[in-house]
Structures are given as structure tokens and as C-alpha cells.
Design a protein around this nucleic acid. Structure first.
Length: 417
DNA sequence: TGTCCACAGGAAATACGGGGGT
DNA sequence: ACCCCCGTATTTCCTGTGGACA
């Protein structure tokens, strides 16, 4: 009996090893792919007429570098997954190479503000990238950091390209940061400064202090979402590199491209869907079929919320727990009763409860992330409050509740109706 | 028509933690 | 050891408010 099982396992492993669908995983996940490989893939994709217009615009923009001129700054707008970041990085790498060939000093740094960052940290990161300062968490004045950056670059020459990725993510002192970058820094360093911003908000510069804004001469370039056709080329490229082409049913690429372009035109999500489908196919020992794409799509949707809540702060998890398990007496759940549930949850788990005011903000945050819909309504003499509703299926809701109970190491418990 | 509910949500105050300089 | 600086989270205090109800 035992050998029987062992043999079967071994046979499974051999079978899976002999007939893999995925030949190289890293081409389905850019995180695993070293930068050079990423650039190679990108070069190939650009060669199939994807983003031709954008590349041409950026090239034009930077052409003054080779005529001893000074390009203005560049602001790139486009939603997530349109390839802003990788395209700019690719392009700057190319320019760097050309400049090296022609003996033009060209330095570039990539300041990635992928999550909301206070002015201080953004400046500190910049200083670190320029090797002008060590990393501080707190405790140093802004002036000090600015001074170090300036001192470092005082005697630089040629060009300095500062790529501020997700430029609208500077949270506090938004203006201080950009005043430094736009007005102050160019005057105090040797090299000619070229700023490149990306953002997914069209109006991100509207919040700028008018004095800074008037100083900031930018060319705007927008990256439109990928259409199904471009996505298809991108996917075809990935398939060629990563998968066994004979194991893909006809129409799969079309379907993934169609699904992704309908949604947001996000290439990352399209590739992710491809990978998920391939994983399912390997599990089932089948080819990648249209049905599997559907299944993978559903799984991604389901896991999205679980992953999100798992990586959220405890207080937010507790608030979601209250919002999901609080029983409305009639209609929707309101802030007050939800807060009572939250308080009970806190006393059960030993979490320090926060005030109702702060709790209300958490509900708002949950709404932003799409976990709940919290609408403020007036109920006449019964006061103003938020109406909390969820749109999850029961299965996802149970999953979420279980996940939260797990992170607080509570027994699984019974899901209230 | 006025009252009053049960909060919303803004602003300021406070607490806290981390870090530098002396 | 002490004080100062900085950022973040939270509390405290406050004014505002849409509409059911008398």
C-alpha cells in the first residue's frame, strides 16, 4: 500500500516534470526578472509597434541633450499598468548608454514614491540615491538633507535626470518638496537638471503652489491604457518566452487580452491572469483552456481582498470585522452599532480600542479600498450616520472573517447570519 | 415650522516614538 | 542625560446637518 502511494506520487512528479506548461516562470512575473531581462523583453515589445508614439515623443524631448541644450521637464500621465515606469527607466538607460558613447556626462536617479511618502522621507531617499546622505528615519531637519544633496551635486556637470515616480505621492509638505526640486536645486548645482514625473492623476500638479507651478516648465505626455491589440502582442511575447505553445488552446490569448482591456488595460494584470491560468492548467494536467481563464479570473478576484486585508493594519482589520459581522436590526448597519461590535471584538482580542471618531475614519478607508460601501445618510430625527453595506458573496465574506480571526489567533467561530 | 437626533467631519491638541546634537 | 526636531496616530473638542416628527 505504502509503496503504491509513493509510486503514484513519483509518477505524478515525473509526469509534471516531463510535460511542463510553464518553461520559465520568471517571464510571467516581472518581480523575478532581473532588470536587464526586463529591458530586453521591453525592447522586443517596442519592436512590435507598441508605444511607438510615446517613445518618439520622449526621444524628441531628450534630443537637446545631444546638442548641448537643456530639455524642459517631463510629466507622464497614465493609469497603473500602462508601462510608464518601465518605459521611462528603459529610456533613461538607453540615453545613459548613448551619452557614455559620446562622452556626455549623464546621471540618472529613480526616486520611487510607490506609496504615500512624507516630504522628509522623499528627500531623504533622494539623498540616498545620490549617495549624499545616509538613511534617517526621523530627527534631521529638512534643511540639513537639502543641504547635503546640494553639496553633493555642487561640482557635478553634464545632465542629471531625476525620475520622480508617482509624483503625487508626496503627502505632507508637498510644496516644500517641489519647491526644492524645481526652484532651488537647479540654481545650486553644476549639472543641468531634468525632472521626469509620473502620476496616474491628470491634475496632480494642480495642488502645487502657484509660485512653483509658474516656474515649472513641463511637457506633458499621456500613456493611454493598452487596447486589446497591444495587450495581445505583449501576451504573445510572454507566451513565447515562458510557456509551451502547444499547451495553449486557441483563443486564450484573445480572451485574456479582451478581459484585461475591458477592465483597465493593465498589462500587469493581463500577465498575471495568464500566469494564474497556466498554474491551474499545470495542476489539472490540461492545456490552458478558455474555462481555466475564467476560473483563474475568479480566483484572482477572490484572493485580492484576502491579501489586502491580511497586509492591512490591525485596527483596519478589526473595523472590517465589525462591519462584516455587525447585524443590522433593519436595513443597513450604522456607525454606532458597528462601533459596539468593534469594542467587543477589541475586548475579546486585547486590541486597544480607538475612539469612535477614528473608527469612523477607518470605515471611510474600508470604503475606499472597496471592502464596504459606507454612505452617509440622514435618518431625520434618528440622526445622521453612515450606512454600511457589503457587496461580497457569502463565501468571500466568510473567508475574510476567517482570515481576520486567524490573524488575531481567535478560534474559527461561527459566522453569524 | 421648529426641534432634535446621532452622528459627520474639521481643527487643534496631545501622545508617542525615534533620532540628532551637545 | 538632556533638549530639540520631526512624523504619525489618535483624542478631544467642536460645529454642522438632513430630514422625520410633533
Amino acid at each position: 500500500m505504502q509503496t503504491n502511494i509513493q509510486e503514484r506520487i513519483w509518477a505524478e512528479i515525473e509526469d509534471a516534470a516531463e510535460n511542463p506548461i510553464v518553461i520559465s516562470h520568471e517571464y510571467l512575473d516581472d518581480e523575478q526578472l532581473p532588470q536587464e531581462r526586463q529591458f530586453e523583453v521591453l525592447t522586443e515589445i517596442f519592436n512590435t509597434n507598441v508605444r511607438t508614439h510615446e517613445i518618439r515623443t520622449i526621444s524628441n524631448h531628450f534630443s537637446p541633450v545631444f546638442r548641448n541644450g537643456h530639455p524642459t521637464h517631463l510629466s507622464v500621465i497614465g493609469s497603473t499598468g500602462t508601462g510608464k515606469t518601465i518605459t521611462i527607466r528603459w529610456f533613461l538607460a538607453q540615453i545613459e548608454k548613448f551619452c557614455a558613447g559620446k562622452g556626455i556626462p549623464f546621471q540618472q536617479v529613480h526616486l520611487d514614491l510607490c506609496c504615500p511618502t512624507p516630504c522628509f522621507r522623499a528627500l531623504n531617499n533622494l539623498a540616498c540615491l545620490l549617495d549624499a546622505s545616509k538613511r534617517y528615519r526621523k530627527g534631521v531637519s529638512l534643511e540639513e538633507i537639502m543641504g547635503r544633496v546640494e553639496a553633493k551635486l555642487k561640482s557635478s556637470d553634464g545632465y542629471l535626470a531625476v525620475f520622480v515616480d508617482e509624483a503625487d505621492n508626496v503627502r505632507t509638505d508637498f510644496n516644500t518638496f517641489y519647491q526644492f526640486l524645481v526652484k532651488r536645486l537647479p540654481k545650486r548645482i553644476g549639472a543641468r537638471l531634468v525632472l521626469i514625473f509620473t502620476s496616474n492623476r491628470l491634475d496632480w500638479m494642480e495642488n502645487l503652489d502657484p509660485r512653483v507651478k509658474s516656474c515649472l516648465k513641463v511637457r506633458e505626455l499621456s500613456f493611454k491604457s493598452y487596447d486589446a491589440d497591444s495587450l495581445k502582442r505583449i501576451l504573445t511575447m510572454r507566451v513565447k518566452k515562458a510557456l509551451q505553445p502547444s499547451r495553449i488552446e486557441e483563443g486564450v490569448i484573445d480572451k485574456i487580452a479582451a478581459l484585461a482591456s475591458q477592465q483597465h488595460g493593465d498589462a500587469r494584470k493581463a500577465v498575471n491572469l495568464l500566469r494564474r491560468s497556466a498554474d491551474l492548467a499545470e495542476q489539472d494536467r490540461t492545456a490552458i483552456t478558455l474555462e481555466l481563464v475564467d476560473r483563474a479570473y475568479e480566483e484572482i478576484e477572490r484572493d485580492k481582498y484576502i491579501d489586502m486585508i491580511r497586509s492591512s493594519p490591525k485596527q483596519l482589520q478589526a473595523a472590517l470585522y465589525a462591519a462584516l459581522t455587525g447585524k443590522p436590526r433593519t436595513g443597513a448597519l450604522h456607525t454606532g452599532p458597528a462601533y459596539l461590535v468593534y469594542e467587543r471584538f477589541c475586548s475579546e482580542t486585547g486590541l486597544r480600542p480607538i475612539s469612535q471618531r477614528a473608527f469612523s475614519d477607518l470605515l471611510y478607508e474600508l470604503d475606499m479600498y472597496g471592502f464596504i460601501r459606507a454612505r452617509t445618510v440622514s435618518r431625520g430625527r434618528y440622526g445622521r450616520t453612515k450606512e454600511i453595506r457589503t457587496s461580497f458573496s457569502r463565501a468571500i465574506m466568510c473567508n475574510l472573517v476567517r482570515t481576520i480571526r486567524e490573524t488575531f489567533s481567535m478560534p474559527p467561530g461561527v459566522m453569524p447570519l
